[in-house]
Every structure is written in structure tokens, then in C-alpha cells.
């Protein structure tokens, strides 16, 4: 099963390197990773797709949490989410095929963003299945170039992957009796 994991990370040099190095070292398979700004300046949001059949997703989230620059990790696969991917497809188009391509593009509610004498660039947004089927349909015309962003995702409604509220970092193992952040209950 494909898992969608969202991580909020500090926007510092080397963070992407740390994350990808972790995946490589632990032998985790990522299918896609998309990185960009989050709602809070100084923090980036990463969306990763991981194959749960070949990779222990629980370990992925726990190991990501261990990175100092990672603030929050959520596996939102089972949540009610909106998930999108964007693709740019440069497809061969002649006078004879152009109108047929335009029809397909219309059906997929995609856009043509560039027209050249022998090609078109199509911009399409949607889930992976939609993108896959459009690509499959256009293959017959000859795809010259393809760029996909990988999935980004967001929970619907109240739920969300947000930066945790500011808590002072305890400077030492704090004395007993003080109220402390408690461990998340981990289900085996």
C-alpha cells in the first residue's frame, strides 16, 4: 500500500540531504518527494510517498522524527485528504493530430500552456491515476518530455499537519514532578 507522509522541517541548508541520506541508509524506498515552503516562514513542508509493502512505514516516521531539523511527521494515508500532483507533458503534435490531443486535454480538464509547430506542452493536475492515464493516452502521439512533481497532500477540514506550539526546550532531563510532555502511546 502506498503511504503519504508529510514532514515539517526547518528550512536550513542540508535538510533535504539529511532526509534523503536517511532514506538511503535505512534502505527505505521512496516513490516521490516534494518539497516547498509551508504556511510558516522558516519551515518547509515535505510530502513523501512510501511503498508500505517494501518499507516499514512506522520506522520511516520514527527515524524522521529523530532528525533534529524535523518538527513533525504525519502519515496521513488513512485520513481524509486532498492529494494532487502536477505534470508538464511535451507531446508531439502535427496539424493532423493537434485537434485530437486538444480533445483529450479537455476531457482531462488539463491545460495547454505552450504551442509550437510540432509540439504542445500540457499542464495537468490531479491524483496519480489521472496523470497516469493521460500520459498513457498521449503516448501514442509521442511524448518528447515529461516532468512530474510528485504528490503533495493536505487533510480536509479541521485536521492538518501544523507546526507544534512553541514549547521551551528542557535544558536537562527535568526533575520529577514537573509536568512534562508525555510519550505518545505507541501501538506495537
Amino acid at each position: 500500500m502506498k503511504h503519504t507522509i508529510v514532514a515539517l522541517v526547518e528550512d536550513r541548508p542540508g535538510v533535504l540531504n539529511r532526509v534523503s541520506s536517511l532514506f538511503r541508509r535505512r534502505g527505505f524506498n521512496i516513490e516521490s518527494i516534494a518539497v516547498g515552503h509551508s504556511e510558516t516562514p522558516g519551515f518547509s513542508r515535505m510530502t513523501m510517498m512510501v511503498d508500505g509493502d517494501t518499507t516499514d512505514v512506522d520506522q520511516v516516521t520514527k527515524q524522521l522524527y529523530k532528525l533534529i531539523d524535523v518538527l513533525k511527521v504525519s502519515d496521513i494515508t488513512r485520513e481524509d485528504i486532498v492529494a494532487r500532483e502536477l505534470a508538464l507533458i511535451k507531446v508531439r503534435a502535427t496539424a493532423a493530430t493537434r485537434s485530437e490531443i486538444i480533445q483529450i486535454v479537455d476531457i482531462f480538464r488539463a491545460n495547454i500552456v505552450d504551442v509550437a509547430p510540432d509540439s504542445l506542452i500540457i499542464e495537468v493536475t490531479g491524483d496519480e491515476d489521472k496523470l497516469d492515464s493521460l500520459v498513457r493516452l498521449l503516448k501514442g502521439f509521442g511524448i518528447k518530455e515529461l516532468a512530474r512533481t510528485g504528490r503533495i497532500a493536505m487533510s480536509r477540514g479541521q485536521a492538518g499537519v501544523l507546526i507544534p506550539e512553541e514549547r521551551p526546550t528542557p535544558s536537562a532531563p527535568p526533575p520529577r514532578g514537573r509536568k512534562l510532555p508525555q510519550s505518545r502511546e505507541v501501538t506495537p
Binding site: 532528525l67 533534529i68 524535523v70 507544534p164 526546550t169 528542557p170 508525555q182 510519550s183
Partner: peptide, 18 residues
């Protein structure tokens, strides 16, 4: 005097239920 490491909050107290 202070440090700000929002991504680093080790857990010290075990969960009472556990």
C-alpha cells in the same frame, strides 16, 4: 541562555498508561 530547537523534544516521562 536559551536555545530554540523546535524539532528536538526528547520524552523523559513514560506514559502512565503504558
Amino acid at each position: 541562555e536559551k536555545i530554540n530547537l523546535p524539532g528536538y523534544k526528547p520524552t523523559y516521562q513514560g506514559h502512565p498508561t503504558q
